[in-house]
């Protein structure tokens, strides 16, 4: 009986192993990416804190020096408001990294004002309130989550009224500000791993394509961004090569110029 039980146990273990192996074997180790081209969904734009998180792991960053007090003037053009809104949300993530409660609260108010400016204020009010409350409690994880919710709600509200293009400008504004901060940090303390975080050629192509589909937004800053992305593309689309310090510095100069353009009047 003992021998029989042992045999059963061994058989069960062997069978389990076979099943696991079979499951593993079912997953192809390699696929043809070119065949996927027709079924691939658009790139999802990462939030700045996703990049900042990776950056933090490379060494201590003095986030306080990247907190921006100038949140931009009031625009009437909706594309400009959308770009600025994305930038301000990204500033919120920087302020969270710096654990700067007054800056976070100010950003919460600014986000609400900008969201009202493009007609989606009602969906943002609860998030702005939650950002301010979480900052008061120094609940940084809560602030991070609310900033993510804010961006998501803004974009959902825009998509619902078929303002997808403005929604894309919010993402673009956030990406530009995130890239500006990333390149600023890496320029000051260069590392190849830090520079590698700029390797985002598909994301850049995604923004270029989206901007090409916005001829109706005839504002100078949009044209400036289009021209700038053409300059940035070869600096980050380097394949398996490393991104050198001078490229990081150049991208920082470009994104800083664009950042200033987004927050100030033409």
């Amino acid at each position: 009986m003992t021998l029989f039980t042992k045999c059963i146990k061994v058989s069960v273990i062997a069978l389990s192993g076979l099943i696991l192996c079979a499951q593993g074997a079912q997953v192809p180790q390699h696929i043809d990416i070119k065949q996927l081209s027709k079924t691939v969904e658009d790139v999802v734009v990462p939030l700045p804190n996703e990049i900042f998180g990776a950056l933090n792991k490379l060494g201590a960053v003095n986030w306080k020096e990247h907190v921006r007090s100038d949140k931009g003037i009031n625009f009437t053009e909706r594309p400009r408001i959308a770009l600025l809104l994305g930038t301000v949300i990204a500033d919120g993530f920087v302020a969270v990294q710096a654990e700067d409660a007054p800056a976070v609260k100010e950003i919460g108010q600014r986000v609400l004002a900008l969201a009202r400016g493009i007609g989606v204020g009602s969906s943002i009010t609860p998030h702005a309130k939650a950002i301010i409350e979480a900052a008061d409690k120094r609940n940084w994880e809560g602030v991070r989550q609310e900033l993510d919710r804010t961006q998501n709600s803004v974009q959902q509200a825009m998509n619902e009224v078929h303002d997808e293009k403005l929604s894309q400008l919010v993402s673009l504004g956030g990406w530009l500000r995130g890239t500006e901060v990333l390149t600023s940090v890496v320029t000051k303390h260069f590392s190849t791993d830090g520079a590698e975080l700029l390797h985002q050629p598909d994301l850049l192509s995604y923004f270029q394509t989206r901007l090409q589909g916005m001829p109706e937004f005839n504002v100078p800053i949009i044209h400036e961004i289009q021209d700038a992305l053409v300059q940035v593309k070869p600096l980050i689309d380097v394949g398996n090569a490393r991104i050198p310090p001078e490229s990081v510095k150049k991208i920082n100069e470009i994104t800083t110029r664009l950042g200033n353009g987004i927050v100030t009047r033409d």
Binding site: E41, V43, V44, V45, P46, K57
Partner: peptide, 24 residues
């Protein structure tokens, strides 16, 4: 908060492209 979604028939696949960062 953002997510991808849709519907698929049995045996169908969908590919989503995503930027990932080394270190995360």
């Amino acid at each position: 908060e953002d997510y991808w979604g849709g519907d698929l028939g049995s045996g169908e696949k969908k590919a989503v492209r995503q930027q990932l960062f080394k270190g995360n």
